[in-house]
Each structure stands twice: as structure tokens, then as C-alpha cells.
Design a protein around this nucleic acid. Structure first.
Lengths: 337, 337
DNA sequence: TAAATTTGTGCAATCGTTCCCGACGACATT
DNA sequence: AATGTCGTCGGGAACGATTGCACAAATTTA
């Protein structure tokens, strides 16, 4: 069995009390240099590490933060996680990552898990299915520090950090228009998600600016964010089977883009000859794709960093924070073909 | 501040002792039905959750396992993690994921982190840089249950689970040979990694079987597994600049494949006209690539599941386990073009 | 009716750590 | 010689939950 050494082990081995050993290790002034040296050397020798559970119990904090994302396989999130870890580790915090796979049930369980696991704070990006915010609201009301990023809720009052989704969507859509497209469809995630709302707004704004009427038939929502391939496939097929077939699609997410490309490939539809594409994606292999896909790239790493800094500020604040920030970071449009 | 309710809160609110409350919640026989109901209802109402740190301290286990992989952005690992989580969650364990980014220093820190964090066991895939196994050996000797997967060490005696790398490499190489290639190069990760060794062996075996001489100039190692694009680029360029230029490359990893494709694209080298490719990859977007890449796919999800089952068996075993298993799972070759 | 048994509950120790408080020797001060 | 100060160190409570043991009240038995 794995039994790490404890303070008591050091104390009995050295004929001291646990309090003295504790103080020696924490370099308190009231311990003699000789004793300190003795203790430190022995502790080093047996590779003593304080028991984090005992510490958490005593200090009432765990020096760890919980992260809730839909999927680590998503490039946006894996990059954001790298940003989160870079800050968290530097400040002495552990990071516990959980995935919702866009499921509301899974999100609830994970949040519950993390809260009971006594993390000091939460970094959350909502799942595509999430409508009800009760589980988060209650926890927030009870004082759990949390910061939302990417997919943020309207009604929970805390720090939020998002990409400039509206501007990004506007840029992508306008790029399609400037490429000569007029019948631009929009394939997006579930309707209640903040990113969906904002991207839809940017899409409409671009159309409006260029005097193109918004066609409701051109807007397709995938309630599970493309988690199920059939969902994406059906949406794309519906677009392609319209009488007035679109000549471009603006796609609101990574997984949706891939799903869409797969359908187009299966039907052997030429891109960009028959249809032009643009979409949100943080994938680093888009350049290698057979079909060109102009992409709006979010500063994921930076967003992860910023969100973590905000969360640690909440966690370490001595007084309840009442002023919350809504940070918006610009996106970049990468044009392909 | 976030102060979850404790047993004592319930006890004082109900005029009982903490022991009675504890027993009521754990449904012990010696508590009257009336009291039980009272306690359960109140606990439900205030959403009581036992403090996991107090429990871990008492039980001397945390019901959590640590995972060490090189990168969650790697499709193989993200799929493996899904497999790990599926088992762990079902058995009531938390999963703490850490990334090495192929760095030995990072691996040491993460292992140290997880050990001090008192996880009950470790699921490890070695980093490309790792040569020295001291940090793992010492922990293992001190009784920390661990299971290795994918990249496994020779000298630590515990459960290991790998894909049939040799057979997979053999299949891929033989496929290249059957496609008419004779001058087959091999682009791979750092030389000491188990997967590199086994895949190299399979590569050589296929060449031998078909009476093709192994050309040492055709074998290129990337010590950081393609973590740095320059590394991959240089290796590929060296291959392309050989007097006797190879007509195919068998690539031993996901990131290397992508790096290689990027170089070929930059140089505008036609695939498969000028050079044919095959490689290990669990990416689900290879079909969409401009350049066809036949791929050896590992059963990542299944490997994650199996590794976790093995680890939990070690953790929950009453007696020290001395019989260890070396599970090898078959790969699948997906041919493109 | 008194003794024995059952039933329900509380006390206290434990896990590993920190920290308040007090102890005790050595030395200086009055 | 008595008191004060300082430098070092130990005792013990606390954090939250579990659990063996003790013990009172309620019930059954003799």
C-alpha cells in the first residue's frame, strides 16, 4: 500500500513534536537554525510532501479549479485548456478537466462532482443542450466563484469572457459576400447558446449591410452542436435540397464544419465551385483540407489565460466581488481560396 | 465565501449529534426510521454533500486517478481519455488529466503533482523526451498503483496495455510495398519510446519479407515527437533531399503526419504521384485531407477503458498484486487511395 | 416487580496539518 | 535573590467525517 510519510513520522524519527517539525518546514522564526536544518534535511531525504487533503480540510480550500468544457478533442477547447493550465500552474493551482459532450445531464453531474470535490472555483463553458441554469445558479448563490468563457449565460452575474462572435461572424459572412455569394446559409449550434445568438446576429448584420434579405430557410440549428453526425447531415441536406439552393454556408463551429465537409465530400459537391464555405474553427489542419474553408479563429489560449486570471482574482479576493467584467476579445479571419 | 454545509450544521439544526446524523445518512440499522427520515429530508433540503477532503483524510484514499498524456489535442489521447472516463465515472472515481507536451520536466512535475495530490493510482503514457524513469520507479516502489498505456517503459513491472504497434507498422509498410513503393522511408518519434521501437521493428519486418534492404538514411527520428514544427520539417526535408529520394513515407504518429503533410503542401509535392504516405493516426478528419494518407488506427477508447479497469483492479485489490499483464490490442489499417 | 435485553443515541478517537497557548531553561536586570 | 525577557519547543484543539464503545430509555422476560 502507498503510505506517504507524515509530519509525525519525521517528528518521532527526530525526537521532536509535530508542531516543531511543522514550524521548521514552514520556516518560522521561533525555531532554531540547527533544528530547522535537521528537519529540512530529513524531510528532503524521505521526500516528505504535506498531505493535501489534510491541508484542504484545515485551510478550507483545495488550491484546485474545475473546468467544464464540451470536449477536449475540440481544438478551441484544447487550446483554451493550455491557456488555463499555464496560469493555474504558475499560481500553484491544479486543474481538473471535465467534459460534457454537449449533454445537459453530463454538465449537471460534472458541476456537482466538482463542487463536492471542493474545488476553489469553476471555469465553465455551457453545453449545447443547457437551457436550465439552476445547478449553476444555486452554486453561484452559495458563493462558489465562477467565470464563464466562450458559451456564457445571460442571467448569472459574474466575470465572462467571450470572443467577439458578432464581429467574427460579420467578417466571415461579409467575406463570403465579397467573394460573390448572395445566397448565404448559416449552419449553427443550438439556438439558446450565447455563441449561436451572437454569431447569428453578425451574420444578419453582414447581410443587412449588403442589402441581402435574411432567408429563414437558410438558417439551420443543430441542437447538439454537431455531436451526432446525423444531425449535421440532415441539416446540410435540407439546405442542399432547397429549391433556391444556397451558394455559400457560414458555419458556426468546428465540429459542424467537419460534419458539413463530410457531407459535401460524400455527395461529391465541389468547393468552392458549387458552394463556398466559411466558419468558426480553431483547427490547425484546415490548410490541409481538400476543400477550402475560410475560418474565424478565436484566441483560445489567451481566453483561457484571461478566464483563469479572472477566476483566481475572485477566489483570492478578501472581500466579495460585486463588480464584474465582460471581456470580449477579437477574432481573426483566415481566408482560404 | 463558499461554505458548504457540514454534518455539524445538520446536527445542531436538528438537535442531534453528528454521529447520529452520519449514521442516518449512511442508513445504518441502529437509527430509527423517524430520525432517518428527518435527517435525510433536511440533508436533501440544504443539499448536503460530505466533504471529500475529510473523507480522503480518514479513508486514506481519494477516489480519484491521475492521467498523464502528452497532449489532449492528440486524437488518440482524447479518445483514450473518453474511454478512461467512461470506466472511472461508472466506478465512482474522478479523473485528473495532465499534459506533458512531450517534455520530461513537465512529466516529472505532473507525476509529483498527482502523487502529492494523493490520487489512488496513475495512468501513464510516457513523454517523448523521457529517458530516466526514476520519478516513476520510486513512486511505484513506494506502492503507488500505476498502469502504463501506449508508451510503456521496459523496466517497471506493472500492467501495460499497448496497441499491436509492430503488426500495425508491418501492415502499413506492406500496404505501401503492395502499392508499388520500394523506397520507403520511416519518419518517427524519439528512439527510446516503446512505440517507436515496435513500429520500427514492424517496418523493418515488412521490408525484409519483401526482400527490400533497410536503408538507414531513410529512418528519421524526431526527439520531440513533432512537437516543434521545425523538427519535423527538417527531417522531411532531409528525406526529400536524399540522392535516392524515397517514394513513400511510413509515419509513426499523428502530429508527425500533420507536420509532414504541411511540408509536402508547402513544397507542392504531389501525393501520391510523387510520394505515397501511410501513418499511425486516430484523427477523424483524414478523409477530408487533400493528400490521401492511409492510416493505422489504434483502438484508443478501448485501450483507455482496459487500462482503467486494470488500474482499478490494482487499487482495489486487498493483497499486493504480483502477476502483471501485458495486454496488446490489434490495430486497423484504413487505406486511402 | 426486578432483571435482562433491545433500541436509539452520544462521546471520543482518528486521519495529517496548523496554530494558539503555555512551558521551561538560560540569561539579564533590578 | 527574585523577577523579567528571550529563545525554543511541546501540548492540544480544530478542520469534517466515521465508528467502536458506552449508556440511557424502552421494551421484554423471568
Amino acid at each position: 500500500m502507498f503510505e506517504p510519510p507524515t509530519l509525525k513520522d519525521i517528528a518521532t524519527a527526530l525526537g521532536l513534536s509535530t508542531s516543531t517539525v511543522s514550524r521548521a518546514l514552514r520556516d518560522t522564526y521561533e525555531i532554531s537554525a540547527k533544528t530547522k536544518k535537521l528537519v529540512l534535511e530529513y524531510a528532503e531525504k524521505i521526500n516528505y510532501q504535506p498531505n493535501p487533503n489534510a491541508l484542504s480540510l484545515k485551510e478550507r480550500r483545495s488550491k484546485s479549479i474545475g473546468v467544464v468544457v464540451s470536449e477536449v478533442a475540440n481544438h478551441y477547447f484544447s487550446q483554451a485548456i493550455n491557456g488555463i493550465e499555464s496560469i493555474a500552474y504558475a499560481r500553484g493551482y491544479h486543474v481538473i478537466i471535465t467534459q460534457t459532450h454537449e449533454s445537459y445531464a453530463r454538465e449537471k453531474i460534472n458541476i456537482q462532482h466538482l463542487a463536492s470535490r471542493s474545488v476553489d472555483g469553476l471555469l465553465v463553458s455551457l453545453s449545447a443542450e443547457t437551457n436550465d441554469l439552476h445547478h449553476l445558479k444555486e452554486l453561484h448563490d452559495r458563493g462558489m466563484p465562477m467565470v464563464f468563457f466562450d458559451r456564457v449565460p445571460e442571467s448569472i452575474h459574474t466575470h465572462k469572457i467571450t470572443a467577439n462572435n458578432e464581429q467574427g461572424a460579420f467578417d466571415a459572412t461579409e467575406h463570403l459576400i465579397k467573394s460573390g455569394c448572395r445566397k448565404i446559409a448559416h449552419l449553427t449550434s443550438s439556438a439558446q447558446l450565447s455563441i449561436s445568438i451572437e454569431r447569428l446576429r453578425g451574420y444578419k448584420a453582414a447581410l443587412n449591410k449588403h442589402d441581402i434579405k435574411v432567408n429563414p430557410d437558410y438558417i439551420k440549428h443543430c441542437p447538439h452542436g454537431g455531436m451526432f453526425p446525423e444531425e449535421t447531415e440532415q441539416a446540410v441536406l435540407e439546405l442542399l435540397n432547397l429549391k433556391d439552393k444556397p451558394d455559400a454556408i457560414f458555419i458556426a463551429g468546428d465540429r459542424l464544419s467537419i460534419g458539413c465537409l463530410e457531407v459535401l465530400k460524400k455527395l461529391d459537391i465541389k468547393v468552392p465551385e458549387e458552394i463556398t464555405l466559411a466558419g468558426f474553427s480553431n483547427s490547425d489542419v484546415l490548410n490541409l483540407f481538400e476543400y477550402p474553408l475560410s475560418s474565424v479563429r478565436q484566441p483560445a489560449f489567451e481566453m483561457g489565460k484571461t478566464a483563469t486570471e479572472m477566476l483566481l482574482q475572485l477566489i483570492e479576493s478578501k472581500y466579495p466581488v460585486t463588480e464584474f467584467e465582460d471581456r470580449v476579445i477579437d477574432t481573426n479571419l483566415f481566408i482560404r481560396d
